[in-house]
Design a protein around this nucleic acid. Structure first.
Lengths: 192, 192
DNA sequence: CCCGGCCATTGAACTAGTTCAAGAAATTAC
DNA sequence: GTAATTTCTTGAACTAGTTCAATGGCCGGG
């Protein structure tokens, strides 16, 4: 159950066996069926979820009711609304499973306890969040600077498993254009 | 010299006097004239700069030579290429002063020393980076979901001092559209 | 004080992507 | 296995934003 996540954390820092044990003991295991909301807009996010198995999408809904996908999270990723989680403020996003999922969860209390008793985890979380910043910066750049076609091709390369796991209109909403246009881009690409 | 930054860090965590002293002793003070590059594409970023006074812009240049502004950083903000700084990899961005600046700098060594000797700073940096993630998520959402006019109005509200400090075409490149179009948006708004 | 180089504006022609609507294909639910 | 629903595709009309080019304003440097 913990092999993946323990492997994951040691990529960020070297932990002593009892630090790892403490960490594992604080994680809550949960199985969640597909199409389940882990978080809805307006709720406070009380988890940071590591995905052992499955696929999860987080998204915003804009004023016209359109969805904007923020993240497709798969095995070995974390998903949460970090701002809501840490500040206890209502979230603006939805987090929903796309498949049956096997999750390992921290809540604000267990996370705080972990950081108190094994402060070395501060570093791990910092490094994790830093990588997140880089990824978001890159994505922002790409969203502004490239064409729909290029975005889609880059997406396929970077997230090769997602097209089999998420419907196309969600991918369009991740890339920042309409589902109809993605369909047109795809037929255009197929003709090449 | 350190009053602002010390005030800044205590908003994230409570530090003992000697932790603060250590921190201050590790900071390098530097005055930089306007239009100076702190970082150019291809270089490794060796600083995290806290801005005591002044204004700095970080930006990417895309394949057609167009600039995409990532950040306008002002007093009380940090600026760096976090990925390059931490992994020692060449950066893809430019960081340039818009005004004469008074900076306080950490480099990889002093930052590491700080974290070793006063691990409480791990938390501060983690919280800082987390806020960054939220801001980037919000901006990404806005970039995808709103019109140029709305982006500009939100920008004016959130960064009221920037229009006096940066040329308009840089603001356009921050918002993700062309300088000509920003000009048209502005005249349209002025007529209302 | 004048020159040269940004910088902002405007208009006209254009294009990448949207919207709407309708039908086909694929999944899911019973 | 069939109905119901969601998903994908296609086309036509549209629009938000781009691109190019020309003009004039402005600021900084000598």
């Amino acid at each position: 159950m913990f092999s993946h996540i323990n492997n994951y954390i040691t990529r960020y820092a070297a932990f002593a066996p009892d630090e790892v044990n403490l960490f594992n003991s604080l994680l809550e295991q949960r199985h969640v069926p597909k199409k389940t909301f882990l978080l809805k807009e307006g709720e406070v996010c009380r988890f940071e979820a590591y995905i052992n198995k499955g696929c999860i999408r987080s998204y915003y809904v804009d004023e016209h009711g359109a969805e904007i996908t923020l993240q497709f999270a798969i095995e070995n990723w974390w998903v949460s609304d970090i701002a809501s989680f840490h500040e206890g403020k209502p979230s603006r996003m939805f987090i929903e499973t796309l498949e049956d999922c096997e999750l390992l969860l921290l809540n604000p209390d267990t996370k705080e306890q972990l950081l108190q008793e094994a402060p070395r985890f501060e570093r791990m979380f910092r490094l994790m969040v830093q990588r997140n910043v880089s990824r978001l910066q890159e994505r922002l750049f790409q969203t502004i600077a490239t064409t729909a076609e290029q975005k889609y091709l880059d997406f396929l390369e970077r997230y090769p498993t997602i097209p089999q796991r998420a419907p196309q209109h969600q991918i369009a909403s991740f890339l920042g254009f309409s589902p109809e246009f993605l369909s047109k881009v795809r037929t255009r690409l197929a003709k090449k």
